[in-house]
Computed example of a mutant assay.
Amino acid sequence: MTDLAGWPGHAVLQIPVPEMEDWIVDRTRFYDTAFLSDDPGFHHAHITVLAPITTWNLDAIADLAASSSPFDFELADIAVFPGGTIYLRADPVRQFKRLIHTAWRAHADVHPYGGDDPLPHLTLDRLSETVSVASTRKLITRPLPVHGRANSLELVWYRANECHLIERWTLGA
């Protein structure tokens, strides 16, 4: 279990990826059960649009969702960021980046984890003495690529033992 006593938590604006939910829940259970949510509306598997968010503009997020059409996406290539995070790259990048940059303009005080130009992705794991790209690939029992549909934006709260859905908006509604 991770010692995050005193960490105030933060919100994440995300696109859910239900096709990978079971896998991500299993990895979360492996690392830290405090980040498993019992909220039935909470999606652990997601592509981050903007994080970490400590204050948010619900009207701007609602406008972003309403002005964005649903789109299909693919998660095919397993790769590793320089810091050791193992991920699946999300394509088409252009549509995700439009969401990312529009959300960021509405929340200019946020400093995205991915820097000035975050790469849309689904986090799978982290390199360690026991975790590699090969071991991660073996653990993924479903065939790649994973095909999904971005049809909603979710604002969720992350804090140990408090993970929950704040609000969900349908894209294009």
Rank of each mutant, 00 (worst) to 15 (best):
L64V: 12
L64H: 10
D117G: 02
A106S: 15
P145W: 01
D26G: 14
P70Q: 01
K97W: 04
P16V: 04
D72P: 06
G148K: 09
D26V: 07
H44F: 06
F30Q: 09
W23E: 09
I78W: 14
D109Q: 13
P118S: 12
I86V: 08
V17L: 14
P52Y: 02
T102F: 11
D32N: 03
L99E: 13
V25W: 05
D38K: 03
L124K: 07
I61P: 01
D59W: 13
I78Q: 03
D117M: 00
P18M: 04
D63V: 04
A76M: 03
T33I: 02
L88M: 11
W56G: 06
S128T: 06
V133R: 10
I140L: 11
H111P: 03
V146N: 01
E21C: 12
P16G: 00
Y31Q: 01
P92V: 14
I86P: 13
Q95A: 10
P18Y: 06
T130D: 13
D72I: 01
L99H: 14
T130C: 00
D125P: 08
G84D: 07
R105L: 15
F42Y: 15
F42K: 03
F35P: 02
R27H: 08
T55H: 11
S135D: 07
L122F: 15
D91Y: 05
A34I: 06
P18F: 09
V17A: 02
P82L: 09
A66H: 13
S69V: 02
S132P: 10
R29D: 14
K138N: 09
M20D: 10
L58D: 14
R27A: 05
L122G: 11
H111Y: 04
A103G: 12
Y87N: 10
P92E: 15
P92Y: 11
L124H: 04
A51G: 01
L139I: 10
R98Y: 07
I15V: 15
P118L: 09
A45C: 08
A65I: 13
D125V: 02
G115Y: 11
L88R: 00
